[in-house]
Structure formats: C-alpha cells, structure tokens
Amino acid sequence: MRRGRTSPGKAIGLLMLHGMLAHHGGGGSYDASRPLYLRGRVIQARYGFPHGQLRIEVPANLTVPNRLPGVEGLRGHDDWAGPPIAEGAGQARDLLLPPDITGTLGGMSGRPQVGDEVAAVVYRRCDAEGDEYSGELRVQMLYAAGGSHPYRGTLTRFVDRCLQAARTRSAAPAASGGPAAPAATRSDDPPLFLLGGGAALAAGFVIALVRLRTRRER
C-alpha cells in the first residue's frame, strides 16, 4: 500500500488546474480602456506553448500611425477611451502572445525572429498585490510576417479600466460629498468561477484517462 505519494493523474490534474488559474490571462484583468502601441526590432523570440513571447527594442522616436488595420474588431474596442498611445519609447519591452497568435505564428516559416521588426496593439494587465504578472503587455493585434494577427480568444478578462485606477478616480467625488462612480467592467467577460470550473473539469478528465489506462495495463 502506497502512502504519501501523488499519483501521476493527480499530479497532472493539479498542474493543469494551477496552470489554467494562475497563468497569464487565467486570473488577471487587462485594461481595454487604455490600448498601447509598440513597434520595434525583435531582440528575443520564444514560441513555447501556450504563450509565445517577443522582446523588442522600441525606438526613442516612436509614434502611433493614424491607421491601425483591423483594430475595430478587437474585443474591448468599444471600451477604448481613445486611440492607442505609444509605449516604451527608447526601451526594451516584452510582448506576451496569446495562444491563438502563438499557434498561428508558430506554424509559419516567416515568423518573427531576432532582427525582424514588429508592431503591436496591447492591453496592460492591471496591477494586483501578489500577482507576478502585473503590468505585462498582452498582444491584441500583432503586425508581423507581412500581415496582421488579431487575438480571437474569449477567456481573457477585459475591463474598461483597472479597478485600482477606478478607486482613485472615484475617491475625489466621494470625499466632496458626491456619489462615487463604480468601476465598470465588460459584462461579456467570463466570471472567474467559470475559469476555475473549466480547469477542474479538464483536470478531472485527465485523471480519469490516466486511471483507465493504468487499469488496462494491470
């Protein structure tokens, strides 16, 4: 009789559960009201699943083009408080690629590599205490490899402003006797408990498969 050991199925399930809840996009929110624009030369490129990552060197004279093809169809576009603003001028920035963009680029022979130039519209992850991914830049539209590559997923939670910023803005009218404006969020974003439920189902499915295989091998 084995004690104090975790079966392979349980280990895989726990890893999947932790990954789906704690990885990029699984438990955080991204500010769609303040889109950012970056352009620069790739100095590092990684296409590991589920997220690829590009580190780019942004020029000091970065300006935002008057036209950014395809952004009108992006999730969160209705919450934009204005056009994208330049981010990271004269510095290096990391761009997090969602799984669908990672998969698209990963199968292309001309995917961005070191030395290539790319541009992107991104949302910044809202800062939260204890969140190791606070402030990361998640790509919503990548202009690279001769085309435009939009994020088409639906799991990422978008807000029309980060809650901390909303509290700061709402504190002033409250202190003067006026009503505090609540932080608005998009109603079509999936509740966090759905993400947890999906992770639990996936973990349970994997555990069941491993147990079934183990019984057949006995």
Score class of each variant (00 low, 15 high):
Cys162Pro: 04
Ser176Ala: 11
Leu163Asp: 03
Tyr151Ala: 14
Ala180Arg: 13
Tyr151Met: 06
Gly177Arg: 05
Ala183Ser: 12
Pro179Lys: 13
Leu195Ile: 15
Asp188Glu: 09
Ala165Lys: 07
Phe193Ala: 04
Ala166Val: 05
Asp189Phe: 08
Arg152Leu: 15
Arg157Val: 04
Asp188His: 04
Gly197Tyr: 06
Ala181Thr: 14
Val159Ile: 12
Ala172Phe: 15
Pro191Cys: 03
Ser187Asp: 04
Thr168Asn: 05
Asp160Ile: 04
Phe158Gln: 02
Pro190Asp: 00
Pro190Cys: 02
Thr168Glu: 14
Pro179Asn: 10
Leu192Asn: 00
Leu194Asp: 00
Ser170Arg: 12
Pro173Lys: 10
Ser148Met: 07
Ser187Lys: 05
Pro150Leu: 08
Leu194Tyr: 08
Cys162Gly: 05
Ser187Ala: 14
Gly196Tyr: 09
Leu195Asp: 01
Ala183Phe: 01
Arg167Asp: 13
Pro190His: 05
Ala175Lys: 08
Gln164Leu: 15
Thr154Ile: 15
Asp160Gln: 09
Val159Cys: 10
Arg169Leu: 15
Gln164Ser: 09
Leu192Val: 11
Asp189Cys: 09
Arg157Ser: 09
Ser176Phe: 08
Asp160Leu: 03
Tyr151His: 10
Ser148Tyr: 09
Leu192Ser: 06
Thr168His: 07
Arg169Gly: 01
Ala165Leu: 10
Pro190Asn: 00
Pro173Ile: 15
Ala184Asn: 00
Tyr151Ile: 04
Cys162Ile: 07
Ala181Arg: 09
Ser148Leu: 01
Gly153Arg: 09
Thr156Arg: 01
Leu195Lys: 12
Leu194Ser: 04
Pro173Gly: 11
Phe193Met: 02
Thr168Tyr: 08
Gly196Pro: 00
Pro150Ala: 13
Thr185Glu: 10
Ala183Ile: 02
Ala165Pro: 00
Pro179Gly: 07
Arg186Cys: 06
Ala184Asp: 01
Arg161Tyr: 03
Ala183Gly: 12
Arg167Trp: 12
His149Ile: 14
Asp188Lys: 02
Pro191Gln: 01
Gly197Val: 00
Arg152Cys: 04
Gly198Lys: 01
Ala172Arg: 13
Leu163Tyr: 04
Thr168Leu: 15
Thr168Met: 13
Gly196Lys: 03
Pro150Tyr: 10
Ala165Gln: 11
Gly153Met: 11
Ala172Leu: 15
Ala171Asp: 12
His149Ser: 06
Thr154Asp: 05
Arg167Ala: 10
Cys162Asn: 08
Ala165Arg: 10
Thr156Lys: 02
Tyr151Leu: 10
Pro182Leu: 11
Ala180Tyr: 02
Gly153Leu: 11
Leu192Met: 09
Ala184Leu: 10
Arg161Met: 15
Arg152Thr: 15
Ala165Thr: 08
Thr154Gly: 03
Gly153Gln: 07
His149Glu: 05
Leu195Arg: 14
Leu192Glu: 01
Gly178Lys: 11
His149Gln: 08
